[in-house]
Simulated scan of single mutants.
Amino acid sequence: MSSRETVITIVQGDFAVSTNPDVIMSTVLGSCVAVCLYDPDAGVGGMNHFLLAGTGGQRGRDLRYGVNAMELLINRLLRAGAERHKLRAKLFGGARMTTHARDIGPSNANFAEEFLKQEGIPCISQSLGGEQARRVQFTPTTGAARQLQISGDGPEIIPTKKVPPPPDITLF
């Protein structure tokens, strides 16, 4: 990291958007999911970090819930100059952190994938599931992302999975 770079830490129930090429967004995830969205042509991107899938029974500004976190992130990106049809996504998190709790991580991951599909936003890479926490670093202006898997032995770099592009579809 150069001395000019600024790290913005995204905590649970938070999001950020930036057009500054010196910004790196960072978060640590277990069962939570971070969605990194960016418009490569406009040089703008952002990251959210949500705890629970869905809306929590109400629409609003509670960013702990996926729908709210996604809608607010997308709206802020559009206000910052992104074009909706040019948005690209990268997904991280959704681990199963305990064996005795309900499957919050997989539920969060499924929600994020379905939300993007319904909104027509392509997911170009993802690292979802597993049983370990991960630290994610995202450069919002370029879409570059890096993750470190956190285990009892310390962080380890793990690759993200490329998602094949959807077939070309013409809508009338």
Rank of each mutant, 00 (worst) to 15 (best):
C123M: 09
V7D: 10
N75M: 14
G154E: 00
D153C: 10
V35P: 00
D22C: 05
G46L: 09
T170C: 04
A144Q: 14
S18V: 07
N68Q: 13
R79E: 12
T170Q: 05
S127C: 11
T139E: 13
P40C: 09
K90Y: 01
G54P: 01
T139V: 13
R59Y: 12
V28I: 04
R135E: 06
L87W: 02
L116N: 00
G43L: 05
A101W: 08
L73W: 01
G46P: 07
P166K: 08
N108M: 08
G66W: 02
I10V: 07
R134V: 11
E119C: 05
R76C: 11
P140T: 10
P164I: 06
G81Y: 12
G94F: 12
L78P: 02
D22A: 09
G93Q: 10
L63E: 01
E131A: 10
D62I: 02
M25I: 10
V44Q: 02
A69N: 06
V7L: 15
T27A: 13
G105S: 12
D14E: 13
D39H: 12
K162V: 09
I150S: 11
K161Q: 13
G130R: 09
G105T: 10
G56V: 01
T9K: 13
E114L: 07
F15Q: 07
L52K: 10
M1Q: 09
P166W: 12
G105W: 08
C36S: 13
N75T: 14
L78T: 03
K90C: 12
A95S: 11
L63T: 00
P140Y: 15
S2N: 10
V23I: 07
I150V: 15
G105N: 13
C123V: 15
D153Q: 15
V28K: 10
T9H: 13
Y65K: 13
A53L: 05
A80N: 00
Q118A: 14
D62H: 07
H49W: 01
R146W: 09
K86C: 04
G30W: 03
T99L: 15
I10C: 02
M1F: 06
G129H: 00
R102V: 14
